[in-house]
Amino acid sequence: MSGTNSVSRPALFSAGALFSAAPLIIFIVLLIYLGISAPNLTDPATINLILKQSVPTVVVCLGLATVVVAGGDDVVSGGIDLSIPATAIICAGILADQLTNHGSPLWSAIALAAVAAVTMGVLNAVLVVAIGMTPLLATLASSVAAVGVTKVITSSRRINVDHPFVIYIRDANVAGVPSAVLIAAVFVLLFCFAVHRTRWGMQLQAVGGSRDAAEVSGIKTSSLVAQSFFIAALAGFLASFFVLARGSGSTPGSEENLLLEMVLATFLGAAFSPRRIVTVWGAVLGAVLVTALSVGFKSIGVNVFWTGCIKGTLILIVVASAAYSGRAQS
């Protein structure tokens, strides 16, 4: 009996276990500190605000989580798509340009934005699956290209949008809950169901777990990885409506913050999973917590540059912890 204890205790409290739980511990400590320093952080109105502000990050995280599930969570060679925020920004730019500058009807603006998103999805899939580029580099390149095209489309200028559809997403409340939060919740449920509850999702996880094993069991791994990039572009497309609504228009440069929060939230989300793997629901929870952290820091008057520094450090800890867990598992 004592022998069993002496084996399990060090496993639970070993340096490795502590290191992989580090992001979660740091986050909980930070949130407790913020909850004490900024008492209004737990007000229903502030929680509503946190949920509302987190929506664009939540939706891009759905895409990144899907890609990581399919490609494996090795930060360098596994699945990653850094271009999702750029896809959101290019779609938002097209929507804003079409609705405001050209007076196009909503359906044609949406159709054009969808074409851009499909192009991004196909481009990433070709670069990674057909050409065999590392997802990190491929999607970084496509992200830079998309931001460049956005600047051409918008002439690098802000475009205001006051279309009723965008205003609805921005301002409407259903039973006291912002409509954006409800719509995003539907997307979250759909992604969770697709990735974690369907046969397709199981195959996706199998590919991410071990591509060789998946291939041996007859799963078309390349096709599934390509589909994950396509789904990620779809998430970028969906996020564009929330980006547009949040800013009442498209603003150049909004992809930078979104990228930072997306990576932080998705890999932080892995810390919530018992096996320390990236999951859709974990990424969503991560996105809400990252926003709560931003709102909390601002509420207690922390300098915005320190907030950036803290977020950067957290990304480092989260990614290092993910890499460490991956190495320990292998």
């Binding site: 502000q53 802000r158 949040r246 800013g247 009442s248 603003t251 440069g253 909004s254 930078e256 913050n257 601002k298 008057g301 300098n303 915005v304 540059f305 907030t307 950036g308």
Partner: peptide, 12 residues
């Protein structure tokens, strides 16, 4: 509150 030169963050 400081927007860090991001108009969206400033608005939020």
């Amino acid at each position: 509150v400081d927007g860090g030169r991001d108009n969206q963050v400033h608005a939020d």
